[in-house]
Design a binder for these strands. Sequence first.
DNA 1: CAGTGAGCGAGCTTCCGCTTGACTT
Length: 674
Amino acid sequence: MIKNLVIVESPTKAKTIQKFLGSDFQILSSYGHIRDLPKSELGVDTENNFEPKYIIPTKARKNFNILKKAIVEAETIILASDEDREGESIAWHLAQGLKLKNPQRIVFHEITKTAIENALKNPREIDIHLVNAQQARRILDRIVGYKLSPFLWKKVARGLSAGRVQSVTVRLVVERENEIKAFKPEEYWTVTALLDKNENEFEASLVKKDGKIVPKLGIKNKKEADKILADLNKADYKIVNVEKKEVRRNPLPPFTTSTLQQEASKKLHFPAKFTMGVAQSLYERGLITYHRTDSLNLSEQSLASAKGFITGSYGENYWTSRRYKTKSKGAQEAHEAIRPSYPEKEPEALKTAKKLDDKQFKLYDLIWRRFISGQMSQAIFDATQIDIEAENYLFRASGQTLKFDGFLKIYPLKFKESELPELTKDEILKLLKLTPDQHFTQPPARYSEATLIKTLEENGIGRPSTYAPTLSTVQQRNYIQKNDQKKFEPTEIGTVVINLLIEHFPKIVDIKFTAEMEEDLDKIAENKKQWVPTIKDFYDPFIKRLDEKYEEVSKKEIAQEETNEICPKCQSPLIIRLGRFGKFYACSNFPKCRHTAPLKKEGPEIKCPKCGEGDVTEKRTKKGKIFYGCNQYPKCDFALWDKPTGEKCPECDSLLVATKKGAKCSNKDCGHTQ
DNA sequence: CAGTGAGCGAGCTTCCGCTTGACTT
């Protein structure tokens, strides 16, 4: 007989807490939500106050039975899920699903013995308003997803999907592509002077003309640049100002899920999904705190360990106590930031003890350095800025040298060091050379995983647990895909779906929609608004519009184009249709004639080496993985995983495929590389 | 390692946010 049963969300957390609390307590895990709306139907009674129908999904059944058995034997049931909207909801679903009589609800922010003991002394009731905010969020997302997706099946193609988060994600990528397409590069010129002071050369850039700042487009073409050069060649270069100052740089805050994914992508080239898998393994082994969090909180204990480590290893002057506050709106602060559980455990030591594989080491090292460096002193640079007058022009030279490395000792950031010679006001310099440089303004960059996640978080779209899965979903649906540089580009189907949604359901795909929803949810949580009328206010106009759009929008206009070409099989006109995998030629005499052909793609045509008839083109597996196969499929089943370069192997005449470094032969028995 | 579309109308696709495991090839 166990006196107290405590239920938390994660089994790893349960294990840790069990160690603190001893045998009067049994700690079990809910493994996240135990109940949800059914997958196979809407599960919301829209005629009856949006009454949700909750079921226990088959996946959760086994664990649910374990919990059910355990509650019979326990005297007190303590619900210790996270202190946020979803956590409160999990507690409520546990109470409802397990039919608990008088459950205690406790919360704690750090997993330490004292924090948990304090929490146990202060149990409260479940906060039904917070639960209602979660229910409203869940029900709204279900209505949007399960009403709009079937609309797309009917009007575009089967298997498509739409949702508050995924559709905005695709929209960002589509709109960025539009900006790039519309972008017109503009020419501009810069002028750099190479100057000399007693055999010490240094460079200065032209910044002002007639006292006015020369902006990026101030010098528009070669003619203008040449004219300025002519003036400057005969000018005297006189120092008019020397400014010396100290510039200080602060360390970066510890990681949240989003910044960890961004930094691991930038520094380690890990995709977000992979980062989360490695982080999970570190978490389960007790090496890092919880890895799905938007909090920047740090426990007192961890701050003390960091202080001990820094002062012990680098000296007192390298340590500065710092606390961080989250900037991201909608953060729910149930956890700590992502940090090493035991800051004194140095990455290298764990590696030499062979406790970590290569990927785990790299991620742990990154997390450890980020956390430790966040408790270190500022880096200090000596910066010099020199203004040089040449007639009515002003040049500027700047230099900086590192004076004290501080946190940079363990978290290096890119900066350039350049030293200027000792210079004083009114000195005259010798001009060695003037260099005009032609530039063009650059279009905005396509999103990478890192920048897309950053943008989503900045707009409060999605949560730490969903950034990586959302990116997977929109790629699996074939809405967006990564190009050779791992940057996202929209597909044909993604572009069509988003343009359709923007035109007919602008509110749902508005980037601000989530933020507005969150405001309502906050009011519901504070009991300043009721959840049923809030949902009704959204639902009524939405469903009215949906009904109208089912009438108004015609599939033909979206998914069909005329052509001048003729079907090679039956001589009927060919049309272009839009399917799940993009546009393709189809015979207008369908279904009598089933002829189809792929659209001609840009780039070199690669003849299929197997059948000699078809071309090898990019395709996708059902899981969304890209491969390269013969377009005569199913007549010819030639396929490759790697991208063919278009050239043939000099040794065996098979196709060469691209590798990270160069190319290799697609024939495994050949083994030729280059 | 894989394909789209029309319409008849079986049965199915689909959301976001919590959390990991593995009955079977």
